[in-house]
Design a protein around this nucleic acid. Structure first.
Length: 610
RNA sequence: GCUCCGGUAGCUCAGUUGGAUAGAGCAACGGUCUUCUAAACCGUAGGUCGCAGGUUCGAGUCUUGCCCGGAGCGCCA
């Protein structure tokens, strides 16, 4: 088992260090790492420097002593000490071949499965009813779905939680406005809905605070009167929206039916975009604010009776020891806030679903909110599942998508860029590239029917966008540059997809049966490719641990480069020696499996021809 | 004012949790196609890792202060 070879090397070194320092059973860390430079071997142990210093021993001497005590002769070449005390380990070819055979024989490609039977709950997408999806939703959706796939890949049960903004005063305001204007809710477009939402928001913004500020600044009497008039009509609309919300909360059948139409209208458009994006999110993942509406009073009561919430200026707040900022869980008018709903969701996810890992894929501006939320949940004891497991709550604070002016992405007219327009452009660009290529007589896509070419173009265009999003450190803002994304050169999705398509083509041209072939370590490029493949599990587990998909992206890119270097240097079908030929086909095939598996975890499709 | 995030090649970004000489891709320049799919490969050039101290065998990585950019900060979500 490939896993075990690395860990047995580690264990052997640990024992060596413990014996050399007379620290048996102390669990010292030999700091075993993959070597960066092939000249230093395959692995290196960096433990001697720190441990030598700590225990008053010359690091080089300690390293020498350790390699005298460790016997890895069955799997590695003799160990060597270098520099200030690095221990270099070079595996024997037979060991590497054994590892790659194990990986190839495993339908899971050596990815270790999780032993945690608790589910993971991932808060993603974050759609608001009556609002168009925009680029912010793109990130939450893409990243959340990729994280979900990661956990599913290691056997975890995942709840994708689409926490819809489908309840409360904003929705009531939209509904009030639509009903007042007499629109037919059955033939509503999302655009019309979005406009109504915006108008409702604008109307409500003219609140008493604006008026107060105008008075403070000694605005002219005309201005004051103007504001007072607006304020009056705004609060009238506000009042009727509040009345409507109360009726809705009481289950008024007609209103509930109309409310459902708003949701249906929104989600129809949302799922259209999500379908293009190739994410596994459907109606079954809807669990919005309305789901928790009956829980909120009880949540607040729990905090009050636990002595964790106190009244302050009529509102109920939760205070924390280490900061001034409190968290409001009930307004002075008795209404609940989004923090209340989020607390209800935490309780549901940990206590009812039994999840021991909560992940929120929400933009970075809400950092403080989630810090408060998680701390409050811990105060009341929802940081443990009913069976006593510790709950890990993590906010993935992704950065903003910027335009080329380095400000949040907007259209030229200043409105938000809708997700569907952005996806359509990516698909158009992908299709254009595919058509351009297929017009070449020598291209494998030449002569394919239009529908197939369109499908490939979509897979490439969408893959380009998703890869561009996932391949950077998530916390950083990034500039959305369609030109660079579809350039298809360098560290991009299509570059990796292309390698997969080439391998598929190569394998399909091999007429011999290579299934029983043996791997061979011949050229340096073959060895380098195999060593890269063998890192798959370690990289995957690292990604799972850090929740950083870009680590997998970087590694897949390196793998693709290693394959291209191999492909350039090592003839596969043209090589004379039959054994070598079949081994190379087999190696190409394993590479293809890993590329497709890795892309699938990222939610990116692998076109068969490009 | 307080808190948080970022600052690495002209541009866009990695940097294996403190390891050996800081790496890619674009863009620039030079090579490799009657292609096992050139959407590829090889090479050249490009750096005070924001600035200054500190910690230690060793710092892009940890720490302190400052500079620049961005975000958040009680009844919106």
């Amino acid at each position: 088992m490939s896993l075990n070879i690395q860990s047995s090397v580690r264990d052997a070194l640990q024992n060596g260090f413990e014996e050399a320092l007379s620290l048996q059973g102390e669990g010292v860390d030999p700091l075993l790492r993959k070597s960066q430079n092939p000249e230093h071997g395959d692995y290196q142990s960096n433990g001697a420097m720190g441990l030598g210093k700590k225990h008053g021993m010359n690091p080089r001497e300690l390293a020498e002593k350790v390699i005298g005590l460790v016997d890895l002769s069955a799997i590695a070449h003799p160990l060597e000490v270098a520099g200030p005390g690095f221990i270099n380990i070079k595996l024997k070819d037979e060991t590497i071949l054994e590892m790659v055979r194990e990986m190839d024989a495993d339908s899971g490609l050596g990815i270790a499965q999780s032993e945690d039977a608790h589910p993971v709950a991932i808060d993603l997408c974050g759609v608001n009813v009556a609002k168009q999806l925009h680029v912010g939703h793109l990130r939450s959706t893409i990243i959340g779905d990729a994280l979900a796939r990661m956990f599913e890949r290691v056997g975890r049960k995942v709840y994708r939680e689409n926490h819809l903004g489908d309840w409360g005063l904003p929705i009531a305001m939209v509904l009030e406005r639509l009903i007042a204007s007499g629109v037919d809710l059955d033939s509503l477009s999302l655009d019309a809905l979005n406009d109504a939402y915006r108008d409702a928001q604008l109307g409500a913004r003219m609140d008493s605070r604006g008026l107060q500020r105008a008075k403070e600044r000694d605005a002219g009497p005309h201005r004051i009167i103007e504001l007072e008039t607006q304020n009056e009509s705004a609060s009238e609309a506000q009042q009727s929206a509040k009345d409507l919300l109360i009726a809705l909360q009481q289950g008024d059948a007609k209103l509930v039916g109309e409310w459902e139409k708003l949701i249906e209208c929104t989600m129809r458009s949302v799922f259209e975009s999500l379908g293009l994006l190739n994410v596994k999110i459907g109606p079954e993942h809807n669990r919005g604010e309305s789901f928790y509406r009956e829980h909120l009073g009880g949540i607040v009561d729990e905090f009050v009776s636990g002595g964790l919430a106190v009244e302050d200026g009529g509102a109920l707040v939760v205070r924390f020891d280490n900061r001034d900022r409190p968290m409001l869980i009930r307004k002075s008018d008795g209404g609940f806030l989004y923090a209340t709903t989020d607390l209800a969701a935490i309780k549901f996810r940990t206590q009812t679903l039994g999840a021991d890992q909560l992940i929120y894929v929400v933009d970075a501006r809400q950092r403080d909110h989630f810090k408060d939320l998680f701390d409050a949940a811990a105060l009341i004891g929802w940081d443990k599942t009913p069976d006593g497991a510790e709950v890990d709550m993590v906010h993935i604070p992704f950065g903003s998508v910027l335009g080329d002016d380095k400000k949040p992405l907007k259209t030229r007219s200043g409105s938000n860029v809708t997700l569907s327009s952005l996806l359509n452009e990516a698909i158009e660009r992908g299709v254009a590239e595919v058509l351009k290529r297929s017009s070449d007589e020598n291209a494998p896509t030449h002569g394919m029917d239009e529908a197939s070419l369109h499908t490939i173009g979509r897979q490439i265009g969408i893959g380009a966008i998703k890869y561009a999003d996932l391949s950077n450190d998530l916390v950083r803002d990034y500039v959305f540059d369609m030109d660079r994304m579809v350039a298809f050169e360098g560290n991009t999705g299509p570059y990796i997809q292309y390698a997969g398509a080439r391998i598929r083509s190569l394998i399909s041209k091999c007429e011999d049966d290579w299934s029983g072939a043996e791997f061979i370590l011949g050229e340096p490029e073959e060895r380098a490719l195999i060593m890269q493949l063998l890192q798959y599990n370690a990289v995957f587990q690292g990604m799972l641990n850090s929740l950083e998909p870009h680590r997998l992206c970087t590694w897949l890119y390196d793998l693709t480069e290693a394959f291209n270097a191999f492909y350039q240097a090592c003839p596969v079908l043209k090589v004379e020696d039959k054994e070598v030929k079949l081994s190379r086909v087999k190696l190409a095939h394993l590479t293809k499996r890993v590329i497709e598996d890795g892309l699938d975890v990222l939610g990116i499709e692998s076109p068969e021809h490009m």
